[in-house]
């Protein structure tokens, strides 16, 4: 379990982390969200001692983190980078051995991962001979090479094509299932919604929402009604407890409170048009995010 305990970091003019506390549990995928400049990268760097906190602490399994613990961590920085002129295999071997593992052991991992990510025949090419997407894959292997207990990825999905996104998502899920703690930041909320059990949303360095995604969604007092109608648009303004979130081509999304009489909503729709479909749901992650960051 990774724990941020009132982590605080002040740069010259901005508070990048401001009393930031949350946990990422083992065996689970935790999505780390926040608008640009919220402090995500700073928080992740703090895990690896790349940023010195002014106050507070980051703990791993209830103990402060030292170099020895980091040998069991994997990290993919926001700014990707490896040695451009070094061969892929040599590079991964080197990074694996820096974590303190033996040559034979690392070699086995390198082969397995290269095989798994379809890079086996590029192993003796220089890194800069690879396409951007393949370089990203090597970077991912670099983070996984020591079979980490904690995997921290800063925007791992940026710059990937849809197929690569799907395989990356699958891989992260597998790693988490195997027992590792996986914390990753992303701006692709739909993806995070599909993928993560837990989310942490920060803004201006402070945690504004954190916990199990399903529970967070359920806890919101508002519900959302998605109605698809055919024919003249119903007059939603007569519903006092509902607010139109979006409306186009007969698709309407209403924000209602939990006490709203759904029969009345359906009746209003049927009054002027044919009802095609109807759904009553808690908010999406995007809506949670917007509410949390706006407040």
């Amino acid at each position: 379990m990774l724990e941020f305990d009132r982590a605080t970091k002040q740069f010259a003019r901005v508070a990048a982390l401001d009393d930031c506390s949350f946990v990422a549990k083992s065996g689970r995928l935790t999505g780390f969200l926040g608008p640009n400049g919220a402090g995500k990268t700073t928080a992740m760097r703090a895990v690896f001692g790349l940023v010195e906190l002014d106050a507070g602490a980051v703990r791993w399994n209830d103990a402060p983190i030292a170099t020895a613990e980091r040998a069991r961590f994997g990290y993919m920085p926001e700014e990707r980078g490896l040695y451009p002129r070094m061969r892929v295999r040599d590079q991964l071997l080197y990074l694996g051995r820096l974590c303190g593992r033996g040559r034979v052991d690392v070699n086995r991992s390198v082969n397995t991962w290269l095989e798994q990510l379809g890079l086996a025949e590029r192993a003796s090419d220089r890194l800069d001979a690879l396409s951007h997407g393949n370089q990203q894959r090597v970077q991912l292997i670099a983070a996984l090479i020591n079979e980490p207990d904690l995997l921290v990825l800063d925007e791992p999905f940026s710059g990937l094509d849809p197929l690569a996104i799907a395989s990356m998502a699958e891989l992260l899920a597998t790693v988490a299932q195997a027992g590792a703690t996986v914390l990753f930041s992303s701006h692709q909320l739909d993806l995070v919604e599909d993928l993560c059990e837990d989310v942490v949303i920060i803004d201006h360095g402070r945690v504004v929402l954190a916990g199990e995604l399903e529970a967070l969604r359920a806890a919101v007092p508002d519900r959302f009604v998605d109605i698809h109608t055919r024919g003249p648009a119903p007059d939603w303004s007569s519903l006092s407890s509902a607010r139109v979130v979006a409306c186009h081509d007969g698709h309407t999304r209403l924000r209602v409170d939990r006490a709203t009489d759904l029969g009345q909503v359906i009746g209003l729709a049927r009054h002027t048009a044919d009802l095609v479909s109807f759904a009553y749901q808690p908010p999406t992650l995007s809506e949670l995010f917007r509410d949390a960051v706006a407040s």
């Binding site: 760097r45 690896f48 001692g49 790349l50 170099t67 980091r70 040998a71 961590f73 990290y75 920085p77 700014e79 990707r80 980078g81 490896l82 040695y83 451009p84 990074l95 820096l98 974590c99 970077q139 670099a142």
Partner: peptide, 16 residues
Amino acid sequence: EEKASRVVEVLLARIP
């Protein structure tokens, strides 16, 4: 070069 290619962040996450 290590700084410019950003590999330094990967390295420093592992060793002092």
